[in-house]
Amino acid sequence: MSGDRTVPQRILKLESPEIQRCLIDLFRFEFDNSERRVAYNDYYDAVITKHSQTWMSPERGLEV
């Protein structure tokens, strides 16, 4: 695919930095692999594991 890897502005405007970083990683992964079939499970799992560690859901935040 032609075009660029520019991440949509909306991702950069997200409030949660963890969600933002996660989506940036996933977007670039999808963009780079958009024309071929690649295994994505492990990558997704790794990205989610990495960024969820410091993340706190709004509900949980209140609970804590």
Partner: peptide, 8 residues
Amino acid sequence: KLEFAKEA
């Protein structure tokens, strides 16, 4: 992790 992924 599930909650995080759902929010994403």
